[in-house]
Write a protein that binds this DNA or RNA. Structure first.
Lengths: 213, 213, 213, 213
DNA sequence: CATGAATGAGCCTTCATTCAT
DNA sequence: TATGAATGAAGGCTCATTCAT
C-alpha cells in the first residue's frame, strides 16, 4: 500500500522529467543549444522553473544527458544487424546492407535534428562528448570487421593497411551524413550513401583488379 | 584642401574599419561567434564601442561580411590552377592535383579555424551564407569540368549521370575536410584526401572495367 | 498498547527533531546562517525536506531556538562557580576567578564559532535574541554582586554608581570576547582577559587610593 | 571646446556613479549587505541595472570600495588632533582627548550605521578588509605613541610591555565602540568611553602607585 | 567620424516553503 | 509523522544596441 503510493509519486516525477526532457529535445532540434533557454523548456513542458532544477542539475547537464541518450543503444542495433547475415554473405553485400541500416537508423531512430546537433557539437566541443566518441568507435569496429572479412576472403584488395582503409570508409559515411544534414530534406541519405559506397567498393573490388592482371 | 581633408578622413575611417575587422577575425578564429562580444572586438581594435556601430550595422553583419570575404578569391586561385595544366594532362591527374591544391588552400590560405567556422555555420545557418554557397557552387563546377573531361575521353566510366557523380566527389572532399576539422591537428588533409580520392578514382576508372569485359 | 505505540512514535519524532537540530548546529558552527540551506540541514540529518517543516516552523525559528538553547544553562554554571567561594574570599579574587570561569566557558562549552554567531547576531538583530539578552542580564547580575561586595567591604572605591561601574566591567568582558572572535585562534582569551581586568581592578582598588590619603 | 564636451560628459558619469554609490551607502546603513540587491540600488539611484555594471565591476566590488572609502581620511584627522597639543600636555589628558576625538569621529564623520557594518564585516570576513586593517593599525600607533610618552615621563606605570598595554587600550576602545553599536541610540559613546578610560588610567597612573611605596 | 555612458531585456541558478500522498 | 516533487520569486550579471555630445 505504501509502496503503491510511493511508486505512483515516482511515476509522476518520472513523467515530469520525461516532459521536460522531450520538450527540451524538441527545442534543441529547432534551435541552437544557447538559444534554448530554461524558460523555454519549462514553458513547453508546462512546469515551473524550479521543477527543472529538481530533475536536472543544470542546463548543461541536460544537454549532455540528451546527447548521450540517443547514441547509446544504436550500437546494439547495428551489431544485431550484422549478426543476422548468413555465414556465406558476400562482404560487399554486408557492407552495403550495413550502410542501408545506418541510413535507416540515422533517418529514423535518431533523426535529422539530433544528428545535426551531433555534428555541430563535434565541431564546437562545447559539451561532454564521450557518448559520441563511443558511437564513433563502434562504427569503426563494424566497418573494420566487414572490410577485414572481405580482404581475407580475397573479395577486397587494397594497398592500404586495414586500419587506414577503415578510416576512409568511416570518413565517407560521416561525410555523407554531414551532407545529409546540410541538404535536408532534399537529400535521400540511403540512396546517396549506397551510390557513394558502390563507387568506393568498385575502387577496392578484386573482380576488376584481378581481371586486369 | 577640403577634398584632402575629406580624403584623409576617409582613409582614417577605412583604417579604423580594417582594425575592427581584423581584430574580429582574430577573435573569431579563437572563439565561437557567440563567445566574442562587441566589447572584446572594440577592445582589441583599440576603439570605442560606438565606433563599431559606425562601421558595421550589427555584430551579425560583421560576421556575414567576415565569412564572405575570405571565401571569395579562392575560386580564382582554383581556376588558375586548373588552367595551368597542359592540354593533354590525364583527367585523373588533374583531379588529384586539384585535390592537392584544395588541401593546400584550406590548410594555408584559409586555415583550420576559419574552416571550422564555415562548417559550423553551414550546420546552424545562423548567419548569411551566400558567400559559402557561392564557394560550393564553384567547387562543384570545377569537379564537373574535370569529370566531364575524363568521361568524354573514355578515361572514366560510370553508370551515374555526370551531375550525380560530381555531387559525390564534392561530397567526398567536403567530408574529408570536415574530418580534418574534427581531427585537427592530427590529420594530414592532403595525404588523406589523395588516398581517399585514389580509391574513388579506382572505382570509376575504365582501365579495370574495360579489362573485365 | 496504543499508548506505547504513541509513545514510541513520540520518541521517534523527538529523535528526528534532535537529529535535525544537531545537524543544523554543526553547520551553523561552520558557516553563516544564510549560507546554510534547509537542504543542507536535512541532508546532514538524513531526513526529507518536508520533515524539517514538521518539526520547525521555519528556518528562522530553528535559528532562534538554536541560539537560545546554548546560552541558557551557562548562567547556572556561573552562579555555582561564584557560590563555591569561601565566605571571606577577596572580591578582586572572586572577580578574577569569575573572569577565568567565563573565559573557560566561552572557550570550551560554547566555543568560538557559536560566540562569533552571537556577536554577529547582536549586531544585525536578524533573529530573535531573547536568549542572548537573558544571558547578558545574568552576566550583569554577577558582576554587580561581586562589585557590590567589594565596595561594601571597602576593597573597591569608585566615584561611579554601582550600576554604571558594573556596565563598564560587563562592557570590558564583552569587548575582550569580541576581540577574541576577531583574532581567533591567535588570542588567548583567559590570559588577555585576566591582564585586562587587572588594569581595571587597579583602577578601582582602594589599596593605592588609601595610601595616597 | 572638445575638452569641455568630454569633461562635461565625464562629470555626468561621475555624478551617476556618485548617485549609485550614495544610494548604496544609504541602503547598506539600513540593511545587511546581502539584503540590499543591485535592483534596490539602481532603483534608489534612478538608473538602469546595466548602468550599475558600467560603474562597478560587481556588487562585491562596490561594497569593498564603500568600506575602504570611509575609513581612509579618518587617520589624518586623528593625527592632526594629536599634533595640536602643546608640548607639555599631560599624557593622560592627551589620551582622554584622543578618546573624545575618536568618539566624535565615530559618531559624526563615520556614523553608527557604517560602524555597525565594519564590526559585522570584521566578524564575518565576507569582504576585502584591507582598509579596516589599515585603520586599526593607525589606531594602534596613536595609542602606542601616547602611552609611550606617558611611561617615559613617569606619568604611567605598568608591569606590561608597551606593546601589550597598547593592545589592551585599543581593545578597550573597540569594545566600547562595539557596545555603542549594540545599544545605539541609548548609549553616549563619548561619555561612556571617557568614564571607562578614566578607570583604565587610574589603573596605570603613578600618582597612586608612587604613594604606596 | 568617434565616443562611451546608458539601457533593459534576458539568462541561469538558488532556496524557503507548500501540499498531496 | 514523514516524504519529496513542485513552486516561483528573487538574485547577480551580460551584452547588443542607442544616442547625445
Amino acid at each position: 500500500m505504501i509502496k503503491e503510493k510511493t511508486s505512483h509519486r515516482k511515476e509522476q516525477a518520472a513523467e515530469t522529467k520525461r516532459k521536460l526532457y522531450e520538450s527540451a529535445g524538441q527545442l534543441f532540434g529547432q534551435y541552437e543549444f544557447e538559444d534554448v533557454t530554461v524558460d523555454d523548456i519549462v514553458e513547453a513542458a508546462g512546469v515551473s522553473k524550479g521543477t527543472f532544477y529538481v530533475h536536472f542539475e543544470s542546463k548543461d547537464a541536460l544537454i549532455a544527458s540528451f546527447l548521450s541518450d540517443y547514441v547509446s543503444g544504436v550500437d546494439a542495433e547495428y551489431k544485431a544487424h550484422l549478426d543476422s547475415f548468413p555465414a556465406g554473405t558476400k562482404a560487399s553485400d554486408m557492407l552495403l546492407s550495413l550502410i542501408s541500416k545506418i541510413a535507416e537508423v540515422l533517418t529514423g531512430t535518431i533523426g535529422y535534428n539530433r544528428m545535426r546537433i551531433v555534428y555541430k557539437v563535434q565541431l564546437t566541443g562545447a559539451v561532454n562528448m564521450e557518448a559520441i566518441k563511443g558511437y564513433n568507435r563502434e562504427l569503426y569496429k563494424m566497418f573494420a570487421d566487414v572490410l577485414k572479412l572481405g580482404i581475407e576472403r580475397g573479395e577486397f584488395r587494397t594497398e592500404l593497411p586495414l586500419d587506414t582503409l577503415t578510416k576512409h570508409f568511416v570518413m565517407a559515411i560521416r561525410g555523407i551524413s554531414y551532407e545529409w544534414c546540410l541538404r535536408y530534406p532534399d537529400f535521400d541519405l540511403e540512396e546517396q550513401a549506397l551510390a557513394h559506397f558502390k563507387i568506393l567498393l568498385d575502387g577496392i573490388n578484386t573482380r576488376a583488379a584481378l581481371a586486369v592482371e
